[in-house]
């Protein structure tokens, strides 16, 4: 589904869904707030929720939720910003890597904003799990490029699986809160009116 004309500032969504929307404008303020809160929790709390060596990824479901509700561009920018903030505020030796992986996740998930919104929580949950998988694999590839290695069994058993499982457990509330705050899906595009 594509935009229909110059006056159309947003993708066509079912009218029933839009009628329930409590948000005026595009709710980009809420998007920024959600991203900031997710980064803060990811940095200050999540490292302590540590099972095996897995740490839940709260940023991934946030980026996925924003992308599903506001489209490719907002999803990509949110992913870029959140990833960069996480790398700037935690003691890791990379810059730009997480920003890129979350950007890709945001841009990719944003494509689903143009489709009919699912009434079930399962599709966004599956997207979140895939997103968390992509982020972990992307980060691993960059680490291998840097010459840092980890045994495959350790990576899969101690890091990847626990991280994805914990992320999946934490995702439903994030997705529901995002839906509540941002309302019905509508892709925010350049030259769109009301994108504030």
């Amino acid at each position: 589904m594509t935009a229909t004309g110059p006056a159309s500032a947003e993708r066509v969504r079912p009218s029933s869904a839009r009628a329930r929307t409590p948000v005026r404008g595009a709710g980009l303020g809420w998007v920024a707030t959600m991203a900031l809160v997710a980064v803060l929790l990811q940095v200050a709390v999540m490292p302590y929720v540590n099972i095996a060596d897995g740490i839940p990824d709260l940023v991934a479901p946030t980026v996925v939720a924003v992308a599903l509700l506001r489209g490719t561009l907002v999803g990509a920018i949110t992913g870029f910003g959140a990833g960069l903030l996480v790398e700037l505020s935690t003691p890791v030796g990379t810059l730009g890597v997480l920003a890129l992986t979350y950007l890709i996740v945001g841009a990719w998930c944003g494509r689903y904003c143009e489709r009919e919104e699912s009434t079930s929580l399962v599709p966004p949950l599956v997207l979140t799990v895939v997103a968390a998988f992509v982020v972990q694999m992307g980060y691993m590839v960059f680490q291998l490029l840097l010459g840092n290695s980890m045994a495959a069994s350790e990576f899969v058993g101690d890091l990847l699986i626990p991280t994805i499982a914990l992320t999946a457990l934490l995702s439903p509330p994030v997705l529901l809160v995002a839906r509540r705050l941002l309302g019905a899906p509508r892709a925010v595009e350049p030259y769109a009116a009301g994108a504030a």
Binding site: A3, G5, G96, L100, P190
Partner: peptide, 29 residues
């Protein structure tokens, strides 16, 4: 035609913005 042109322009701008961000990430890295 006008609508299609604007849609194409929007898509190009969107792609351009995302490509710029990707380049920024790679440059940072």
């Amino acid at each position: 035609t006008h609508g299609t042109g604007l849609a194409r322009r929007r898509a190009n701008l969107r792609r351009g913005a995302i490509a710029t961000l990707v380049v920024v990430c790679l440059a940072l890295f």
